[in-house]
Design a binder for these strands. Structure first.
Lengths: 151, 151
DNA sequence: GGGGAAAAATACTTGTATGTCCAAAAATCC
DNA sequence: GGATTTTTGGACATACAAGTATTTTTCCCC
């Protein structure tokens, strides 16, 4: 409804990494297994996050991915601007390329406040906060694997 | 950010039809031209809306598409459930298949009120209301064609 | 009844997001 | 230095949304 699968994987992975001890690289394989997500595809996504400075990567034994120093407070919005593209915040709900207060679609003035709430939420939430929530054990980062459901 | 292109075309077309005199079929060609949208693709979308009872269609000369009797007050949500699928309202922002108050993702309780606002908005707005807004001339249903911009 | 106009139906093409595979490069361990 | 483990990068495959083309059916009008 709002985010592409790529974005969902990216956010899940970043939150998971943020729950792990800082400075200890986390394996792509472990993240993928934990999130129940295709490993090769996740690797691409993590590489992209590296390229844009959110993660550090290390090869070879003891390798893996770490949140880059100072990135724990990164707001979700910053992640989504990378994974969804820079126009993420600019969208008109009817798809008009040019929809502003001056050139409004018929939904513009009702949609705008809701959209602002969405953007405020995404700007407000950061990785550390979400990681802490997960660490309380009260929240899930991924669907339970079938094995777990079956016992 | 929220709607597929198909949904956007569907909503735009329905609003446009609602601005036209009731009972006089509107040509697919005219709608497509007005909205600046591929005609053959729009036709398939309109056929789908017919099949689900939102529109009536008439073949041959004097043919075209009409809003079915009593459908002027159709809320947008009803359209989107057809074009986006019945799971449209059920989505977790992180993509979890099972995300409820009891099995929440770490964003669940912050996202839920925003999502409710979105759903309330889509349930509240109906075709007739949007059509009237367009008829005032203050709002745009489609981007201006390049020709119009160039004068 | 015949010709033309329009939607309906179907098949096909294109584009993009998602997902897979494999070999190369880098780091570590012995 | 060789074996192992990991990321990296590219090519390839699949699925689905978006868009196109063509034929068939139905209707109006003469």
């Amino acid at each position: 409804m709002v985010l592409s699968r790529t974005s969902q994987y990216a956010v899940q992975a970043l939150i998971y990494i943020a729950t792990q001890p800082a400075g200890e690289p986390v394996l792509n394989r472990d993240i993928a297994e934990r999130l129940n997500v295709p490993a090769a595809y996740l690797a691409k996504i993590l590489q992209n996050l590296c390229k844009h400075g959110l993660l550090d990567s290390f090869r070879g034994r003891l390798g893996g991915f770490c949140l880059r120093e100072g990135m724990h407070r990164t707001p979700l919005m910053q992640v989504l601007l990378l994974t969804e593209g820079p126009d993420f915040t600019k969208s008109c709900i009817l798809g008009l390329k040019d929809c502003s207060d001056a050139t409004a679609c018929p939904m513009h003035f009702k949609w705008l406040p809701v959209k602002k709430k969405i953007l405020a939420l995404l700007n407000d939430m950061n990785l550390e906060e979400l990681a802490k929530a997960v660490m309380t054990g009260k929240y899930r980062l991924a669907d339970l694997p079938v094995a777990a459901v079956q016992g």
